[in-house]
Amino acid sequence: MAANEQHYVLPRPEFDKPVKILIVVAPYYKDIADNLVAGAKAEIEAAGATWELIEMPGALEVPTAIGISDRRSNFDGYVALGCVIRGETTHYETVCNDSSRALQLLGLQGLCIGNGILTVETRAQAEARADVAGQNKGGGAAAAALHLVAMARKWATQSKGIGFKPAGQDTLIAGSSDGSKTA
């Protein structure tokens, strides 16, 4: 079982400016969602960040809520939480694939998102993964969002230059008779 596997956990990022995270949860399985949220809140607070929480009806609405929030608010990062347990129909595949794909697309657009939407075969698997004292996937999703925020801030002021000009090189101004340069 995955709970018995040893794995490396990155050190918690540190911030010199406030960080504000939005936790978006689909509480379809309320007890599981509550554990995921508890883990996420604890990790965010341990990093000195603040959080807000909103609920959505299901996992498919979580990415849309994050997209709307990003366009209309000032959050630095997002934590997507919920649980999808396999049932008797193909709806499981649709929800798992589409919610994950939508979150990935938002991430590729530059949003800092930790994905903690569990996709499991059984309730017991979900309970083990959501348990704050166990696998703590809510805390792991929050940690992922915080690491992405730290990386985005680290590179926010770096420039790649303009056009084909390598960063840090001077550019000659066309038609300049005095040989003046600009950086």
Results as ranks from 00 to 15, higher is better:
Ala102Gln: 11
Leu105Lys: 12
Gly107Ser: 15
Gly107Val: 10
Gly107Phe: 05
Leu108Met: 13
Leu108Val: 00
Leu108Asp: 13
Gly110Ala: 01
Gly110Val: 03
Gly110Phe: 02
Leu111Glu: 02
Leu111Tyr: 13
Leu111His: 06
Cys112Trp: 01
Cys112Ser: 06
Ile113His: 02
Gly114Ser: 01
Gly114Asn: 01
Gly114Val: 00
Asn115Asp: 06
Asn115Gln: 01
Asn115Glu: 04
Asn115Pro: 01
Gly116Phe: 10
Gly116Ile: 11
Ile117Tyr: 14
Ile117Phe: 14
Leu118Cys: 09
Leu118Val: 10
Thr119Ser: 15
Val120Gln: 12
Thr122Trp: 08
Thr122Pro: 05
Gln125Phe: 07
Gln125Arg: 06
Ala126Ser: 05
Glu127Ile: 14
Arg129Ile: 05
Val132Arg: 07
Asn136Cys: 14
Asn136Phe: 11
Gly138Asp: 13
Gly139Trp: 02
Gly139Arg: 02
Ala141Ser: 06
Ala142Leu: 08
Ala142Pro: 00
Ala143Met: 15
Ala144Asp: 10
Ala144Ile: 05
Ala145Lys: 02
Leu146Thr: 07
Leu148Gly: 03
Leu148Ile: 11
Leu148Glu: 08
Val149His: 05
Val149Gln: 03
Val149Ser: 10
Ala150Met: 05
Ala150Glu: 14
Ala150Tyr: 07
Met151Ile: 05
Met151Asn: 05
Ala152Leu: 03
Ala152Val: 01
Lys154Arg: 06
Trp155Met: 06
Trp155Lys: 01
Thr157Ala: 03
Gln158Pro: 00
Lys160Tyr: 13
Lys160Gly: 12
Ile162Lys: 11
Ile162Gly: 07
Gly163Ser: 01
Phe164Ala: 15
Lys165Gly: 13
Lys165Asp: 09
Lys165Phe: 02
Pro166Phe: 09
